[in-house]
Design a protein around this nucleic acid. Structure first.
Length: 122
DNA sequence: TATTTGACCAAGA
DNA sequence: ATCTTGGCCAAAT
């Protein structure tokens, strides 16, 4: 079998490459996977087990997470909408905005991010 | 197997 | 700049 990984897992792998201070979009991730499933990318983020620390023992087993990890493994707060709006977040959009600001990403008066400036190119 | 559910997108009004 | 509409597609139900 060439591709054992689920769509969701592939999303996480792609996202893990986005560095601090940059963002990507749901659509960009889908594109990277040769897919148009941008909505499905959002679903994947909503569930993702990598966001902070593993929630369960199964998370470690299934995804081979390191033991003493407290920093985010996959930066799911760096995924925004294609039109520059911040988009959703499991623990609240507000939280997401705070995290982004902490990384130096500006949010303009229309609650948007300048993608020309901050979008990470794969 | 079939339907529903989204952290979405793009074009139009 | 806002809002609506139809479309998209993997996963969950």
């Amino acid at each position: 079998m060439v591709n054992k990984k689920s769509f969701n897992e592939r999303c996480y792998e792609v996202l893990a490459k986005v560095p601090r201070g940059k963002v990507t979009t749901y659509k960009e991730i889908a594109k990277k996977l040769n897919s148009k499933a941008y909505r499905a990318v959002g679903n994947a983020m909503n569930k993702n087990p990598y966001c902070s620390r593993p929630r369960t023992a199964d998370d470690r087993t299934n995804y081979c997470l390191p033991r003493n990890r407290s920093a985010p493994i996959v930066p799911c707060h760096r995924v925004v909408k294609s039109n520059g709006e911040v988009g959703g977040f499991a623990s609240g959009t507000k939280k997401k905005i705070e995290m982004l600001k902490k990384e130096g990403i500006e949010i303009n008066k229309n609650n948007k991010i300048d993608l020309k400036k901050y979008l990470y190119k794969f």
